[in-house]
Amino acid sequence: MTTTDVRPGVHPPQPTADSSGDRGNRGSRLSDKSFIFFLLLPGLVLLLAIVLYPLVRSLVSAFFKESLIYPGMTFVGFDNILDALGDDFAPLLGQTLIFTIGSTVLSFVLGMALALVLNQSFRGRGVLRGAFLIPWLVPGVVVSFLWMWIFDGNYGVLNGVLQQLHLIDHPIAWLFNTDAARGALIIAKSWNSFPWMMVMLLAGLQTVPVELHEAAAMDGAGSIRRFFTVTWPHVRGIAGLVVLLEFIWNFQHFDTIFVLTGGGPAGTTQTFATEVYDTAFKGYDLGHAGALGLLWMVLLMILVVVYVTFSERGEKSATAEKSERAVKKEKTR
């Protein structure tokens, strides 16, 4: 919004020795409005039709009394929203954040650990990099059923294993205990998503120049310190993106919760996503569901604004750094 000049790149074109700099400038005139417009067009069409229109329509519902099954709608102003902000809102938000943050953090930690391991060189690494992707490729709905099958309190394999190891003496109803049920959900969701975290982070790790690590090691930096001083700055950008997207997706996530706990016990694992579903498809109340959706969107929006601001700032400094490096490289030739 702030920068309004059209020219390729963030930094000024490299000055060139011959007169072609002029021609370059003239060339950039071709790349204005219409070029940008057609670049953006297909994506915008899709976003407008598939997301924006339904989104606006649902947000409008938030201000109306509207049912899924009865025709017609009545304007009610902020009633639905005030209602959604009632007593149940704080626990619902808390529960949503527990699941979302828990799943995001766990899958990030596992993905990062795995990426660090698979970035080492050892025999069979290639096969393992592929094999670890399988949990991500099992259809999501099957993942939910698989974990329900594992955690089941009456004949689940988890109880079977623990009992055979004599860690417990009778089967435990994991999904009937608030903390255990929350843990189970986080584990099941993270199992499904840590492989893609691994892929992204592994890619980030590969941008870390080996020389930097060696230099730091020679300076006597331990592996933990090396991780934070050498590795982290290079993967920070990609880590930010995957964490943000994973957070948004987990906030949105429905299947695992619906299948595994159905929001129980006693509604303590209910999240925005399952609550909206219940309200819209069991209570047929589109108005209330829309109000919940509106609040949910406002919350996530704050996060996205923070992220974009942060990443744009990071981008500027990174670009500067990169051009420096490019210059250096040029010199060494």
Binding site: N177, T178, G263, G264, P265, A266, G267, T268, Q270
Partner: peptide, 12 residues
Amino acid sequence: ADQVQAVLIGKA
């Protein structure tokens, strides 16, 4: 169901 479960797990 939520409220009955709350009773069963001793929450209410």
